[in-house]
Design a protein around this nucleic acid. Structure first.
Lengths: 206, 206
DNA sequence: CGCTAACCTAGAACAAGTTTCAGGATTGAC
DNA sequence: GTCAATCCTGAAACTTGTTCTAGGTTAGCG
């Protein structure tokens, strides 16, 4: 597992020219804009293509499916969140509290744009094997964010990594129940706090 | 929340005639059969309709979308699992161990039919608000199974219910990572065991 | 029995994701 | 500057979930 704090997201396939990079940005921007408006269903490939001034075929050359596109959109947004967190790290006492606070911040960001959250999270959990590399990148980014929040002094133990994985599981699934209206904001908060207890349980000093 | 141990799954809308009940069964059977063969994508509405000798329109009258159909299929399968578990309850010492064992049994069942698992779990997590009641039924069934495994002497505390919710989150999300090939069987096992520790942490006697 | 409402069937039609193709534009190598 | 390879465009076609329509069937009821 990579542990750099600010990894370059794309594993560097053939480098893109400037115009290509610009196209890619336009597409991601259009995707996020449509998602913000109406969630997963509102991100329609034809419309993304038109909005970003790109032919449909080209859109599919850049992102081989709607799911790929939305997962890439999520990468993008996560990256931004990661940078924000670097500027204002959580200041609570105790690793568990810091992780909980970090996730709650992310959760509040999602509450501000529930439709965008819907599109990204649905894509993430619906992704099949063909999107594994991209989903994995998102997962690594999330892991990095959580580990950062823990502020470990040394490398995480396998136990701690397990705890982090479980926290990620809970995070994703709790988001889904919230997005589909089956859990309240308060309940998500409780779930996050509950699972964060695992951090103390697995603390090697405990 | 309902806590009956063997609830009638359908909240009893207008009762179905015998032929209608038979149609419903045929549909669910066809759905499971196709799912077993090729997972989510292999469950095609036209084919389900043909296989179960029902017109496409009728299929949609019984299950208003593919997601509804697959979630109902999951209800069906879970119900069977619940009955099996009643016959051979887990015998481990300690609530956490029993819950872990129960989930591992379910996991092994899924390993036997990974395609079916794929179809059901993908549907479950992709479901939007329009499927909330049905998804909730599945969720309640799962909760019941876990609480049964815990073998509590008295009613669960709110804390314990939180722990159970987190376990469910982990369960679903871990399944997804396994189904999409991003986690090994061993890793899912570890995640389940890790999250089950929360049961001990939240035990009021602890 | 005969009526009526609800239900079922076959099939067309529609929507959105994905694929394909012919031709024009860009780019990198020489 | 020219050429070949690659990329991009516009548009049509294909796939599968979903909706709609017109007509036949069934179930309950007087």
């Amino acid at each position: 597992m990579r542990t750099d704090s600010t990894p370059s997201v794309q594993p560097a396939s053939p480098p893109l020219t400037e115009r290509q990079e610009a196209r890619r940005r336009r597409i991601l921007h259009a995707s996020a804009r449509l998602a913000r408006r109406g969630g997963f269903d509102a991100v329609q490939m034809r419309e993304v293509a038109e909005t970003s001034n790109v032919a449909l075929g080209t859109l599919y050359r850049y992102f081989p499916s709607k799911i790929h596109l939305l997962v890439a959109t999520m990468q993008d947004q996560l990256q931004q969140m990661h940078e924000t967190l670097h500027k204002r790290p959580p200041s609570e006492e105790g690793a568990a509290a810091r992780v909980a606070e970090t996730l709650m911040r992310a959760f509040r960001a999602m509450q501000r744009e529930p439709h965008l959250a819907d599109a990204m999270v649905r894509a993430l959990t619906f992704a099949d094997r063909s999107v594994s590399p991209e989903v994995d990148t998102v997962s690594r980014l999330t892991t990095t964010i959580i580990l950062d929040a823990m502020g470990l002094e040394s490398a995480p133990t396998p136990e701690q990594l397990s705890a982090v994985r479980v926290i990620e599981h809970t995070w994703h699934s709790a988001l889904i129940t919230w997005l589909s209206g089956r859990a309240s904001i308060a309940q998500v908060k409780i779930d996050i706090e509950t699972v964060c207890r695992l951090i103390d349980v697995t603390d090697p000093r405990g």
